[in-house]
């Protein structure tokens, strides 16, 4: 296998300018299992960066270290200009996090939850405006358990936006959603990036990464195997003489599905 990686590149220590995230030789082990094996990468400001890899590849551990939820054993991670290993609380204030299974307190409305989350950042927000942004204004006074899967994910993103974060982490945001809801979430991610925020996305859906991400890193066994724009990675594979076992057509089954059922959201 051809290993294409920027790992070998030595980062000039000072130049974190222009980068939302700079990771250098990050390492984390659980007992004998090496979850993250000395990875290095940079995420540019305002890009959507995809972290791909099979389960157990080390994506989640990497993201959790960057989010300040877990400490690494070794290496350096500068997030939003701050060393997350030294000042995790400070980093937490500058980023927004949507977790894979983040539930919320029962008994509170979406508006109340957003107000509470804002207060955790010492802020006061226009909760309704945030809900409008994620298309949940109609559900403002509902509780989370009354929301559909896609609505829950959008609300989860709403809570990650209360502090106007520089970087937004999305952990498998479209898992379990129907095609309409998935497309809807992609649009939301694009609009958030258009506001000048950087997005780090983990996903198992390659079409999602291909559509959304400016660059992707493919991880396995705690190492980064490749890191490039999706098109460049695909071209590299084709250049190697790779032939898919199906003929590429200009539409796929999802396009058929959406053509027949429409792009409108199904979540009454």
């Amino acid at each position: 296998m051809d290993v294409v990686t920027e790992q070998a590149e030595a980062f000039p220590d000072a130049s974190t300018a222009g980068f939302a995230i700079v990771v250098d030789g990050l390492r984390k082990r659980y007992g004998s299992l090496v979850a993250v094996d000395g990875i290095s990468f940079r995420v540019k400001d305002r890009e959507i960066f995809g972290l791909l890899g099979p389960n157990g590849a080390g994506k989640t551990t990497t993201v959790e270290i960057l989010e300040g939820l877990r400490d690494a054993d070794d290496g350096r991670a500068i997030v939003a200009g701050i060393d997350v290993r030294k000042e995790p609380q400070k980093v937490k204030g500058l980023i927004g996090v949507q977790l894979q299974s983040s539930a919320f307190f029962d008994g509170l409305s979406l508006l109340e939850l957003l107000d509470m989350f804002a207060a955790l950042y010492g802020r006061r927000v226009d909760a309704m405006a945030i809900l409008k942004k994620v298309d949940l204004a109609e559900k403002a006074r509902s509780q989370v358990n009354k929301l559909s899967g896609g609505q829950k994910q959008r609300f989860s993103i709403a809570t990650a936006l209360v502090n106007e974060p520089r970087i937004l982490f999305l952990d498998e945001p479209t898992t379990g959603l129907d095609p309409q809801a998935r497309r809807n979430l992609w649009e939301l991610a694009d609009s958030i990036r258009a506001e000048g925020r950087t997005i780090v996305l983990t996903t198992h859906y390659m079409d999602e990464a291909e559509t959304l991400c400016d660059r992707v890193a493919i991880m396995d066994h705690g190492k980064i195997l490749a890191m490039e724009p999706p098109d460049a990675l695909i071209q590299r594979l084709i250049d190697k003489g790779f032939k898919g076992d199906r003929v590429e057509r200009s539409a796929n089954l999802e396009d058929v599905f959406l053509d027949m059922t429409g792009h409108g959201l199904r979540e009454a």
């Binding site: 939820l69 937490k92 983040s102 539930a103 919320f104 307190f105 989350f117 955790l120 950042y121």
Partner: peptide, 13 residues
């Protein structure tokens, strides 16, 4: 179990 505490820990609370 539901990850509520984790979500809170991801804020500077």
């Amino acid at each position: 179990q539901r990850g509520i505490l984790r979500r809170l820990m991801a804020t500077p609370m």
